[in-house]
């Protein structure tokens, strides 16, 4: 991943920042320039809570070179609590522990490294939530 792209997408990757149509309220992740629902061009930034559930998943054993360090890893479709469905890796979990419908929360993790000399790319992954005590 090139440096300008890493820089440009930092809020999307670190904060799960998408956007919301100012006309009809539709939510998007990643951001869109025109609302797919009402064709409105006026959208404002929207930060998702990071809570969601696993819609489906697949385990990757043969990865692209930048992701070799993490195999086997799980790529999942996550239904965010607010609506949009995102694709992301799961973390802190073994392949046998994943279930469709399980709750997950967003964390910032290392996505890849551009070799030993390049930039380290950070971004969202999802993991089973750490429970809050009462």
């Amino acid at each position: 991943m090139d440096i300008p792209r890493t820089w440009r997408l930092r809020d999307q990757r670190y904060l799960l920042q998408g956007n919301q149509c100012e006309e009809c309220g539709e939510l998007y992740f990643p951001k869109v320039f025109i609302c797919h629902k009402c064709r409105c061009r006026s959208l404002k930034d929207y930060q998702f809570s990071g809570r969601g559930t696993v819609y489906s998943y697949s385990t990757v054993y043969q990865a692209a070179p930048n992701f070799d360090a993490f195999v086997p890893y799980i790529v999942a479709l996550i239904d965010l609590k607010e609506g949009p469905r995102v694709t992301a890796q799961l973390s802190d979990i073994s392949p046998g522990e994943v279930e469709i419908g399980m709750p997950v929360e967003m964390v910032v993790r290392k996505i890849s490294e551009d070799g030993e000399r390049g930039v380290i790319n950070y971004g969202y992954k999802f993991r089973p939530p750490i429970p809050l005590e009462e």
């Binding site: 670190y14 360090a69 993490f70 890796q89 973390s91 802190d92 964390v107 910032v108 993790r109 290392k110 996505i111 380290i120 950070y122 992954k125």
Partner: peptide, 13 residues
């Protein structure tokens, strides 16, 4: 740390 963790990701959490 897991393979995708370092001082930056842990500091963020």
């Amino acid at each position: 740390p897991g393979a995708d963790e370092d001082t930056i990701t842990m500091s963020i959490e």
